[in-house]
Simulated assay, not measured.
Amino acid sequence: MEKLMVTVAEVAQMLGVCRNRVYELIYSGQLASVKMGRSRRIAVDELKRFVAASTEAAA
C-alpha cells in the first residue's frame, strides 16, 4: 500500500533539500502539513501539488 503521508525527512530526501528548507516551505505556507503529536506530516497529494506548482512557476 502506498503511503498517504510522509515525514519532513522523507520530503527533504525526495526533493533533494535539507530538512530546514522543508520547514521553511511549511512555515511560509507554500507546503501544507499536519501536526501529529510533536512531528509534522505532509500528504503525498500535497507534495505532488507543490512540485507541479513550482514547476509551472519556473517555466
Rank of each mutant, 00 (worst) to 15 (best):
S54H: 09
K3I: 09
M5R: 03
E46T: 10
E10S: 03
Q30N: 06
A9E: 11
K3T: 05
K3G: 10
G16V: 03
I26R: 08
E56I: 09
A59S: 05
R49D: 15
A32C: 12
Q30S: 07
E46A: 07
K48I: 09
S28W: 05
F50G: 08
L31N: 01
L15I: 06
L47W: 14
I42L: 06
K3E: 12
R49G: 10
T55P: 10
C18I: 02
A59D: 15
G29V: 12
D45V: 04
V44L: 06
L15G: 01
G16C: 04
F50K: 09
E10L: 05
Y23A: 14
M36Q: 13
E10C: 04
A12R: 00
L4D: 13
L15V: 00
A12C: 04
A58W: 04
R40C: 07
M14N: 05
E2M: 08
A12K: 02
T7V: 13
R41D: 00
Y27K: 15
F50C: 12
A53Q: 08
A9W: 10
E2F: 05
L4W: 11
T7E: 14
E56Q: 00
L25H: 14
S39F: 07
E10T: 09
V11Y: 00
M5G: 14
S28T: 09
S39T: 12
F50P: 07
V51H: 00
V6F: 07
M36P: 01
T7C: 07
S39E: 13
S33T: 01
V44S: 02
I26N: 04
Y23R: 08
R40N: 14
S54I: 07
T55F: 05
E2K: 03
E10F: 02
R19S: 02
V51L: 11
R49C: 06
A43E: 08
R21D: 03
V44I: 04
M1T: 15
G37P: 04
A52R: 10
A12S: 12
V34I: 00
V44G: 02
V44Y: 05
L4T: 14
V34M: 07
A12Y: 04
R19Y: 00
V11G: 01
I42S: 08
T7N: 11
R41T: 02
M1L: 08
M14Y: 00
V34D: 13
F50E: 06
L15H: 03
L25M: 15
K35I: 13
N20L: 14
V11N: 02
K35Q: 11
A52F: 12
L15A: 01
Q13A: 15
C18G: 14
L25E: 12
R38P: 00
E56R: 11
A58H: 07
Q13I: 10
N20W: 13
L25C: 09
F50R: 10
F50H: 08
M14L: 09
S33F: 04
V22E: 02
R38A: 07
R41C: 01
V22A: 13
L15P: 02
V34H: 11
V8H: 00
S54T: 11
R19T: 10
K3D: 04
L31M: 11
V11Q: 03
M5T: 13
Q30A: 11
S39I: 13
R21L: 02
N20A: 09
A58N: 15
Y27L: 08
L15T: 05
Q30R: 12
L25T: 01
G37K: 05
T55R: 14
Y23T: 07
V51G: 03
R49P: 06
K48F: 13
Q30P: 09
V8F: 01
R21T: 11
K3N: 10
Q13R: 15
V34W: 03
